[in-house]
Computed example of a mutant assay.
Amino acid sequence: MLHQILAFLLEVAVTLTGGACLLRLYMRWQRLPMGNPVGRLVQALSDWLVLPLQRLIPPRGGLDAASLLAAWLLKLVQYAALLGLLGLSGWAALPLAALLGVARLAVSVATAVVIIAAVLSWMQNRTVVLDVFQRLCQPLLAPVRKRLPLVGGVDLSPLVVIVALQVLGIVLGSLQAGLLSGGAALVGVS
Score class of each variant (00 low, 15 high):
Leu49Phe: 15
Leu51Ile: 13
Leu51Lys: 12
Gln54His: 06
Arg55Met: 11
Leu56Gln: 11
Leu56Ser: 09
Pro59Leu: 07
Pro59Arg: 11
Pro59Asp: 05
Arg60Gly: 06
Arg60Pro: 03
Gly61Asp: 12
Gly62Ala: 13
Gly62Lys: 14
Asp64Ala: 08
Asp64Val: 09
Ala65Asn: 02
Leu69Asp: 00
Ala70Asn: 07
Ala71Val: 13
Leu74Pro: 00
Lys75Asn: 11
Ala80Val: 05
Ala80Cys: 04
Ala81Phe: 13
Leu82Thr: 03
Leu83Lys: 01
Gly84Ala: 14
Gly84Val: 11
Gly87Tyr: 11
Gly87Arg: 11
Leu88His: 12
Leu88Phe: 12
Leu88Asp: 03
Ser89Cys: 03
Ala93Lys: 02
Pro95Phe: 04
Leu96Trp: 14
Ala97Pro: 01
Leu99Phe: 14
Leu99Met: 09
Leu100Asn: 01
Val102Tyr: 03
Val102Cys: 13
Ser108Arg: 11
Val109Ile: 14
Val109Leu: 11
Ala110Tyr: 08
Ala110Asn: 11
Val114Met: 04
Val114Ala: 04
Ala117Ser: 13
Ala118Gln: 02
Leu120Lys: 03
Trp122Phe: 13
Gln124Glu: 12
Gln124Thr: 07
Asn125Val: 14
Arg126Ile: 10
Arg126Pro: 06
Thr127Val: 06
Val128Asn: 08
Asp131Val: 07
Asp131Thr: 10
Val132His: 00
Val132Asp: 02
Phe133Arg: 01
Gln134Cys: 08
Gln134Ala: 13
Arg135Asp: 09
Leu136Gly: 00
Cys137Met: 09
Leu140Thr: 00
Leu140Val: 02
Pro143Tyr: 11
Pro143Met: 12
Val144Lys: 00
Arg145His: 12
Arg145Phe: 06
Lys146Val: 07
Pro149Leu: 05
Pro149Ser: 05
